[in-house]
Amino acid sequence: MITGTDTVAALEDVRRTYLMGSNEVHALDGVSFDIERGQYWSIMGASGSGKSTLLNLMGCLDRPTTGTYWLAGRDTGSLDDDDLSDLRSTHLGFIFQSYNLIPQLDVLENILVPIYYQDEPAPDAEDRARALADRMGLSDRLDHRPPELSGGQQQRVAISRALVNDPDLILADEATGNLDTQTATEILDLFDELSAEGKTIVFVTHEAHVAERASHILRMRDGRIEEVKVQR
């Protein structure tokens, strides 16, 4: 398939089929779209619509049953487990609903986890991590453990962690779902900032006002794309 030089991720007729007993369940039933660098996509859909499956596929945690998924110029279908791990540690940033920090590591170490797993980490990775923490207002919390932080602070650590490897694609899964309204707004403003800086973001949400901030809104239904709305 031919993709533009600025295409970060491309899906072409991606299907993902699970076997539930003897029944085949089509979690994704022929999904195709391209994400260009700097775009901010939000993915909406009811539970069971396939949006989690889509996110797992885009995050290289899962592979399509058929169809192709290109990430950072590589066809993920031909990659083995180690190569996919390399893609995750160098080209992807994950942000989860429940933060998913590692409790026994302190803030700085948590931010650096993707760097630990890189084969050739940048020598200035730690400086980068400190700068990110500084930007997120965490510089006086670097030696704290996650349980000592508020939800908003934990999510800022998680965002720093997702940015530390300067990823091509940031995947956020209900990233504000566990936060109160004010903190959620702050985090969403931060996403807007990142988008404005040219980061490519995919944000899964079920809240319309969250999705409204994105440049593209993709609605999923029964494993298919219901509509893609381009906002700007």
Partner: peptide, 13 residues
């Protein structure tokens, strides 16, 4: 869960 997180963040087997 920790194993899942680490794998998602790029840990190889």
């Amino acid at each position: 869960r920790e194993i899942g997180i680490r794998r998602a963040l790029g840990a190889k087997r």
